[in-house]
Every structure is written in structure tokens, then in C-alpha cells.
Amino acid sequence: MTTASLTQTPAPAPRKHWLRLPHWRFAQRRPRGALALGLALLALIVLATIFVPMFSPYTATEIAGKPLMPPSLAHLFGTDTAGRDVFVRTWVGGRNDLLMVVLVVVASSAIGTLVGVVASMSSQLTDSILMRLTDALISFPGMIIVMAIALVFSGVGEVGPFPRGALPAVIAIVAINWASYTRLVRGEALSLRSRDFITAATLLGYSKTRIIVRHLLPNLATTVVAYMVVDAIVAVVTIAGMPFIGAGIQPPAPEWGSLMLAGSTVLYSAWWVTVMPGLVVTVYGIALSLIADSLLAEVDGGAR
């Protein structure tokens, strides 16, 4: 017994994660459960943004009742300062926000991944040029660049499903946001390049394109997708913050940020104007957080 206890190696301490919120622990213990819950909550929000505006008796811009009516059966989220239904405005605003988020995340990840992979596979000079450009973008205060770019493109009106101000905001965010994907992807790609299966591919005479498409990108996918989900939370916060600096979707089109901004002046007397859309944004954040954490837990588990 003594010998056994002397020779026994102590079990390694569980890895600590910087994010120690309850949902992270849940995601780490039960990644599939967390993923299912996250997807279900997100699906609920997406479905609501599609179907609530279709079946609501009110439109997002019509005066539906008296101003600042508290939540009731007629107006589930109450009415705002102009008497518009906050419930339908929340979901129409959500649709506008989600469309922008999808565009921001897809465009940023595509550009960022492409630049990151090219940098990791290029000569030292090309890599240095691309990464200094990326560093410069990352080191600039993001909101100032977003404001400047949004102002340059402020003349762009309504385009397809995007209300006025949406596309300039998307362009502005993508213009700085791709850089973070580049940093992430280049680091991961460099780490993958040192793995023997990439050396084997090189020795077998595979082209750079084949190595990137068949060997690097599929192995980067989980990390990039996990980051895209996290980025979708950051993007919605950025989009929601834009009305506070005079950019983003222009009134009267609703958007989560502008809804909450409008309610901030009457927060104490009519809390529902701010809190109800805020709750939806919170649920959206938790849903994506659960998805991202479960994906990260999978990556973490796979690495071990």
C-alpha cells in the first residue's frame, strides 16, 4: 500500500479557464447539452424575428396605443414614448440586427481567414507586411474608425432588406473586424504547419492550394466557427452601441440599440421600453455564449 501510494502520480489539476461563468462550467461538463440549449434559444429568437412581425396586429412604426403603456396582453412589452408597440419593434429590430450580424461575421471571417492563411503560408516578407497591417488595425480605437467609415458611407440608403444606415455600419465594422480573425487564424495555421501531417503533405509534393484547402482549413474550422459565434455577440453589442454615437440604422427603423437608447430617458418611469429589448439581447448573448463555449470545450477536449 505504501509502495502504491509512493509511486502514484497525482492526477493533474483541471485546467482553469479565464471565463468561469456558470454557463462555461455547464458547457465544459455537458458540451452537447449546452450546444442544444444554445441552439434552441437562438432558434427561438430567430423564429420570433421572422414570425412576430408577420402576425402582429401592429407594424413597427405605427402608433399602436397611448405612450408609455406598461406591459399588458394587448402590448406584451408595453409601448414606447410615441405609443408604438415595443414587442413588435423589438423583433423587427432584432431582424435588422441579426441580418447585420450575419453579414458582419461572415464577411469578417472570410476576409480574415483568407489573409491569415495566406500570411501563414507566405514568405517572411509577405507575412510581416500582412501582420503589421493587421496590428495597425487592431491597435486603432475601433469605434473611432467605425464612426469615420460609417460617416463616409452615410449616403447609402435602404438596400434590399437592410434599412438606411445598416450597410455603412456593416462596412465600417467589417473594415476593422477582419483583423482579429487574421491574428487568430495565422496563429492556428502556423501551429498546424508544424504538425507532421502538413510536413507529410509537403514531402508528398502537394500544392499550397491543396494543403490550404484539404489540410489547413478543415482543421481551422472549429476554432473559426467558435470565434464567429463569440464575434456575433460582440457584433451585436457594437451595432447596438452605434446609435449612441449617431451611426448605424437610422430612425424610425427599429434596432435593439436605438430601442434601448430611446428608453433610457424614461428608464425610471417606463422601465419596459429599455428592459424588455435588453432582456432579449441578454438571452441572445447567453444563447451564443453557450454555443461558443460548447464548441471551445470540444476543441479543448480534442486537443487533449
Binding site: D196, R214, P218
Partner: peptide
């Protein structure tokens, strides 16, 4: 000339 690697865990593409 072809090579067989030391680490069978790192020498194969995990996705293939």
C-alpha cells in the same frame, strides 16, 4: 523517398 513519422497522432490529418 518517403517518410514515416515518429508520432502517429500528429502525422495524420485528423479530418481525413
Amino acid at each position: 523517398v518517403q517518410m514515416v513519422f515518429q508520432d502517429p497522432y500528429a502525422s495524420l490529418n485528423p479530418m481525413l
